[in-house]
């Protein structure tokens, strides 16, 4: 606001005359200053929007994610004896309710998100969302999850850094499912050299009909086929008809843009039933934090 100095006498104003009232009433000057101030304001608003998008939404989403996780924990603890007996999973809660938790040990021991049902804007503010038409965790088919890459907790901020064989662990009420990222397109040909890695057990090119499924791909936003039971194959429409249990993550790409989608495919290599007598037990894959 330092430009606002009207008390000085007009020093260089040579136009003082019958029509002139000095600088103060010069309409051109006033208009130019107003436009300049508006432009500066607009710039500040844009900067503020960046702050909002990258930081403020994180704060509000973190609180929502905490609530969703608490609600899911409570739901799991309140399983009826029959449910405990049958150990039957169900993911048919309302849109936005928690269905599972996901862990990516490669992102650190504290990387944990509650996956919610549905992929509406409102749900994705809370955490990663399950495409309801895609498969369920641990079952044959494709368990597809969308998540934000920037702001809103940014659960999928770093999924471009996932390497093949990195674990994505999914916890449901009664089970742990360990998915591992599939070989990337440039690794498929030479996969034999990686097969000795103990982390890669069960991971490898899946063969037909999965020959178009790789660990990471970047696709156009309209390519919904990446979440099909057999990704990129529209002739298999039923998840139960798939032979492999896949997990697919989708997020925006490049960062700060929604021009494309970054897609990560993983295959389930192990599953554990939770032992009711050892409620705190976790699978060893969760310790692969290096």
């Amino acid at each position: 606001m330092s430009t606002v100095d009207h008390s000085d006498p007009p020093v260089s104003d040579t136009r003082v005359g019958p029509a002139g009232g000095g600088n103060r009433r010069d309409p051109v000057r006033t208009a130019v200053r107003a436009i300049g101030e508006l432009l500066i304001t607009a710039g500040l608003v844009v900067l503020l929007f960046v702050v909002y998008e990258v930081y403020v939404t994180d704060i509000t989403s973190a609180a929502k994610q905490r609530d969703a996780t608490a609600a899911l924990d409570q739901e799991w603890q309140q399983s009826t004896p029959e449910e405990q007996q049958q150990r039957q999973e169900h993911y048919d809660g309302p849109e936005g309710s928690g269905i599972a938790k996901m862990y990516v040990p490669a992102f650190g021991a504290d990387y944990s998100f509650t996956i919610l049902r549905g992929t509406t804007e409102k749900t994705l503010e809370v955490g990663p969302g399950h495409y309801t038409e895609s498969g369920d965790p641990g079952l044959p088919g494709n368990f597809a999850v969308a998540g934000h890459r920037v702001g809103k907790g940014a659960p999928f901020n770093d999924i471009d850094l996932l390497n093949s064989c990195d674990a994505i662990v999914v916890e449901t009420r009664f089970s742990w499912f360990v998915y591992r990222v599939l070989p990337k397109a440039d690794e498929v040909a030479d996969w034999a050299s990686r097969a000795a890695d103990p982390r890669c057990t069960g991971v490898g090119p899946l063969g037909a009909p999965y020959d178009r499924v790789v660990g990471q791909e970047i696709v156009s936003p309209t390519q919904g086929s990446v979440i099909l039971p057999v990704p990129n194959r529209d002739d298999v429409t039923d998840n139960a008809g798939a032979t492999a249990s896949l997990m697919t993550l989708t997020t925006c790409h490049p960062r700060f843009s929604d021009r494309e989608r970054l897609v990560v495919h993983a295959v389930m290599v192990k599953q554990w039933a939770k032992n009711p007598d050892k409620p705190g037990e976790t699978p060893p894959e969760l310790k692969e934090t290096s």
Partner: peptide, 14 residues
């Protein structure tokens, strides 16, 4: 209000 209308943060495929 404006954020969903801007092309930054759509993460799902159609």
């Amino acid at each position: 209000w404006a954020e969903p209308k801007l092309p930054f943060n759509q993460v799902t495929t159609q």
